[in-house]
Write a protein that binds this DNA or RNA. Structure first.
Lengths: 278, 278
DNA sequence: CCAAAGCAAGAGCGGTGCTCTCTTTTCTGT
DNA sequence: ACAGAAAAGAGAGCACCGCTCTTGCTTTGG
């Protein structure tokens, strides 16, 4: 009953997919705000009114594209994560961040659709929530596992933020300390700040080697959420001292004890963290 | 030069301002993509074609609005900075960040215009650059002064990033070490990541006490660029040691399992419902 | 004072999202 | 197997959009 529900049902699925494909194609050319039902219909050889049999309005088509974009991004991130699932948390964290960046650069207009300015007069329905959460859930899972496994390094919260931090911890991941959850939410937003600036061209004439820059920034973000850098390499294997964990030099700031011996018994391929990729 | 150049010239200036005002008003209601020259003209009691005497196209009107928005944001930030110019670098840093956030929340559509998805088919002319740089220059100035004064804490860079970091340092602020410039650029993007997520509704049902959250995140950002926290106060005055600088305590070390085993990373539906833009 | 320049108005072009009606095709219950 | 229901396409039409071009009127500077 579920497989072939008749020629009509199958045709509907196909036409729906064709509409979304053509819409996505136009999206990549003209951007979301120029998405035109008539143009899509024209390209598909149908008449504009016929599209309304499939999507009751332009906004509904947009919603479908948004969900697809979230899912595409989420799938990319999950796939990248799965590829390094045996590695340490920092590496997994950076892998997910990089996957998000790569996806965004490959699909700038779809990225704009989901993380850019909201389309005015349009509010995304709750149907988008599960798809939208995938990357965040991945990040949470990485940090949670790091916490469960090797432990995470905590940064104390100011008093004024403590109740809110506890609330967020309750909402999002009950088994993580509020300090970590707070840092995680911030890192989540900051990650897409980095990606957005690159995709939207704000780094034009500012950052040239954007891949290296992003990798470093993502690693710093990972440190910020408390992931412990094994073996002492932030990202290069050549940095001094124990990891990006603590500032190292100049005047005033003397650093605090790191957890774990800096160089002792790299549990796994610590230092080569990212050199393997170049 | 701007003295009375005849009634006609003055009228032109006034009408131009009136058009921009009305356009801004519509922007705040309907958003950038719904900006309609005809509607502006209608509201102003003129005919649509007359507007083209003042702005040769819709995009040129948009450019004018963009520059105004950058300038408005920049002025807000500079004003906030001036108000705390006697304080330490962290305070000034956070003040500028908060000013940007407050401005963005007060002018969400103008914020979307300058930091949201770029309008497709529209590329901002170089005329926008000076206005767009004001906030960044302010952040640079704060860090530079902190560096000259109390010294900043450095975070070592990975080898692969060093050439690029040096290049950025040369471009942006010759008298700052590359490590700081790199962190500064990252913090700049991350700051607008935080603001953007809040303005665009990504924090809906995730962060409630957004002001406290932002203040903390901004302070962490300040630390990340090497600002030294005086007296150990993060934002409220309860943090230990030399500032939010270093992780202080570690989380559970309870049964750290051997990490060879592929643990299921059970995402476990943890009440994680967030809303994308609303 | 008068030609030149600036300006408003109107008509018009091709485009948009969307609705309504009418016809054709496919599915389904008896 | 067939009639009725449901789904789908076609086309006309509405009100809007950005933008262009032509036609007159007003201001201004030499």
């Amino acid at each position: 009953m579920s497989t072939v529900r008749g020629a009509r049902a199958r045709a509907r699925i196909e036409v729906t997919a064709a509409i979304k494909d053509e819409a996505r194609r136009q999206l990549a050319v003209d951007g979301a705000s120029k998405l035109s039902l008539r143009a899509v219909a024209r390209e598909l050889g149908m008449v504009s009114s016929a599209l309304y049999r499939y999507f009751p309005s332009r906004d509904d088509l947009l919603t479908a594209l948004i969900i697809d974009a979230y899912d595409s991004l989420g799938a990319s991130a999950e796939e990248a994560h799965a590829k390094v699932s045996g590695d340490g948390p920092v590496r997994r964290w950076v892998a997910v961040c990089e996957a998000a960046r790569v996806w965004a650069l490959a699909h700038p207009h779809e990225y704009a659709l989901i993380y850019g300015s909201p389309v005015p007069g349009y509010t995304a329905p709750d149907t988008t929530v599960p798809a939208a959460s995938r990357v965040a859930l991945l990040l949470i899972a990485i940090v949670r596992e790091a916490h469960r496994g090797a432990g995470v390094a905590l940064t104390p919260l100011p008093a004024e933020l403590r109740p809110e931090a506890r609330r967020m911890a309750d909402d999002l991941a009950l088994d993580l300390p509020p300090e970590v959850v707070t840092a995680l939410v911030a890192a989540w937003a900051q990650l897409f700040g980095l990606i957005g600036f690159e995709v939207f061209g704000q780094f034009h004439r500012v950052v040239e080697d954007r891949e290296a820059f992003f990798r470093h920034a993502a690693a710093r973000l990972g440190h910020e959420v408390g992931l412990v850098f094994p073996g002492g390499a932030d990202a290069g294997g050549t940095s001094t001292s124990g990891g990006g964990a603590a500032p190292v030099t100049t005047a005033s700031d003397r650093d605090a004890p790191r957890r774990g011996a800096p160089q002792s018994r790299a549990p796994r391929r610590g230092a080569a963290d990212r050199d393997a990729r170049s």
